[in-house]
Design a protein around this nucleic acid. Structure first.
Lengths: 365, 365
DNA sequence: CTCACGTGCTAAATCGTTTTAGCGCATTTC
DNA sequence: GAAATGCGCTAAAACGATTTAGCACGTGAG
């Protein structure tokens, strides 16, 4: 019985509290807290006492209770992160970037996926994070229509909303890079996948692409423009359906029986799905159809054919968003409502090639 | 000035507290808390008062402060989730499964990646989560060597540690399925990628595969067995290096100049990387080499060639782990130290085919 | 008339910190 | 000798909820 460790009263393996230390050292909790936090007030406390405090804290393995600290300080050192779907490789890379910056800054994050649900459910997600008392939020490819209550950064949003910081790619440059590349290869009639209606990149990117096409005199006819999952129109977003969707729309595109020599997909996932659909229809990529993606997710360099794509620095964008949201939380108010624009980069690999001679595509099988 | 909303004192948009409600209703905070939480004690409180309380709560948009509740109740309704790397598609699918169950149960989760760091740093990760006062933990492919302090579930661990629940695949069945398939196709000399030394699946899976090979009379010679990143030996884990590693080891395998007709990769990512290495060396898959993966991550069905693989129900495993950890937290103590074994499934696609005739591989280019 | 019980609440402790105001004593300053 | 200053600390009030013990009043029973 008496062979028990010290602190006989609370025999269970509960972590020691300030009060425990205080009793043991015969000091008040105030003193200990002051010393441990290196408060300026503690300057008046003699070195010897301070050492006693530190020694006891070490001996007892004292760790301040995070919840109590949060209650007092009204900060949780946590950020809410909302993505369309965690298992989407595109989102996962952004999250990885967010994570690396946050953890290095002693913040944690709560992750939730809205699965591209209705605006109403989106509000529930925000509400959830707010209730959990996050200090700020990062929204990935998610539109917000009113000013946020907390410091918030949107990655790949496009609406200018008051009080919202943004991290976006330069869509105009991206469009020009991709289309100039295709034009140089001789492509003139190009099919286009627009993004899902719920995805906030959709509008900006499409607009930029059509503008660039016009200025480069490249045709992107409406009959060759498909809106991913827009036309089927149901709201349920099966997790990880990105490739599947590209596949379905690749088939749909072929079904239109309108000639094209290249496809500018909305992202790498839909590009890869479409390539599979083309293969299954007996078409070769890039010999019969060139395909260019967007994002440069990890698989792009290993797919077969290796995917030509417009690279977004996803991890970097995540890191930037994390940095900005922390800046806003910690008072450098300047970044309010700012736009950080990152540069895309054209990565030419094997899924694009010279346009085949005219009129040989239909039933190349 | 007087046109301000009600609650004139705290003019800022702070959320109302119980005290605010109490003042407004001229009741004590105790009463309101009792009513709002449908405490049995509140049975004595007349219907009319209760209605007043509910009405006021609704009108003020009252939400209990999560931090305060947590401090009092000593629960945070949050789970710590530790994965090797968020952006690994394999981990991301598991996380997606975990998430769907947790959010549906009104729990949130803190996600951290250990990036396959040293055991020492792993302790830091656990320490971080513990400090953040999670109610339980889910460890993905991460070995724990001592009994955990909190309810903990490991996915794809293999050590039997007291107090730890486990969700694992039936490795023996998995090995038999894969090797029987290869044998049927005529493969007799098979190369093998073992997992990274830090990955807890490595040992069990290798053992199962060698056992199955022996019983099926298939040769897996040491010269054809490579341990991913084990031999290079550095500890730093570049985010998302999974494909890259498969590529490097695919090259390494070819460099050994030992004949083989099939590769059993450690996972789909390393399979895809190796396929690319084979292509780059002028080999065709499956005509020259068959490749079988493990996991069935989303890309597997869309890769070219479509990947034959041993499917793990990743999302399901995540959901199970979440369910088990919540059960343990909420007192159904039975699941302590349990093993949940899930079944693998062989998915035959296009990356495996009949073994080519003997002695034609070397420099098939 | 006294006691018991039911009704409708509330006071106060508690969770574990942080932080401000200030106490009691000793020493220095003029 | 009085006033000021410095030293080394602490009391106590927050932060915002939950929960136990019990108060005050009214009614009915014996």
């Amino acid at each position: 019985m008496s062979t028990r460790k010290k602190r006989s009263k609370k025999s269970r393996s509960e972590r020691p509290t300030l009060k425990d230390l205080a009793e043991h050292l015969d000091l008040s909790t105030a003193t200990i807290s002051l010393v441990l936090n290196h408060s300026p007030v503690a300057a008046a406390i003699p070195e010897e006492t301070q050492q006693r405090v530190f020694a006891a804290a070490r001996e007892f393995g004292y760790r301040p209770n995070y919840i109590a600290v949060s209650l007092r300080s009204r900060r949780t050192n946590s950020i809410g992160v909302l993505v369309p779907e965690v298992s989407d490789p595109w989102a996962a890379e952004i999250v990885s970037g967010i994570e690396s910056h946050l953890l290095a800054s002693d913040y944690t994050y709560l992750l939730t996926s809205h699965r591209r649900s209705t605006p109403k459910l989106l509000r529930d997600d925000l509400e959830l994070l707010t209730r959990r008392a996050v200090d700020g939020m990062i929204l990935v490819a998610t539109e917000l229509h009113e000013p946020p209550l907390l410091p918030t950064v949107v990655i790949s949003g496009h609406k200018r909303v008051k009080g919202l910081s943004n991290v976006v790619i330069d869509h105009d440059l991206a469009a020009r890079l991709a289309l100039a590349h295709l034009k140089e290869l001789g492509h003139r009639r190009i099919a286009l996948f627009r993004g899902q209606p719920g995805s906030s990149d959709t509008e900006d990117r499409s607009r930029a692409i059509l503008a660039a096409a016009a200025s480069l005199k490249i045709e992107i006819p409406p009959k060759l423009t498909l809106q991913l999952s827009g036309e089927e129109g149901d709201e349920v977003f099966a997790p990880n359906a990105a490739y599947q969707e590209g596949y379905a729309f690749g088939q749909k595109l072929l079904g239109r029986r309108v000639d094209f020599t290249a496809l500018f997909a909305f992202d790498d996932a839909s590009a890869i799905g479409a390539i599979r659909a083309f293969f299954d229809a007996g078409l070769r990529v890039p010999e019969d159809v060139s395909v260019i993606g967007f994002d440069d997710i990890q698989i792009a360099a290993f797919h077969n054919p290796r995917l030509t794509t417009v690279r977004q620095p996803l991890r970097e964008m995540g890191r930037i968003a994390a940095r900005v949201v922390l800046e806003r939380i910690n008072g450098s108010e300047r970044s309010d409502g700012s736009f950080v624009v990152v540069e895309p980069e054209l990565i030419v690999r094997d899924s694009t090639g010279p346009a085949r001679g005219r009129e040989s595509k239909k039933d190349a099988r």
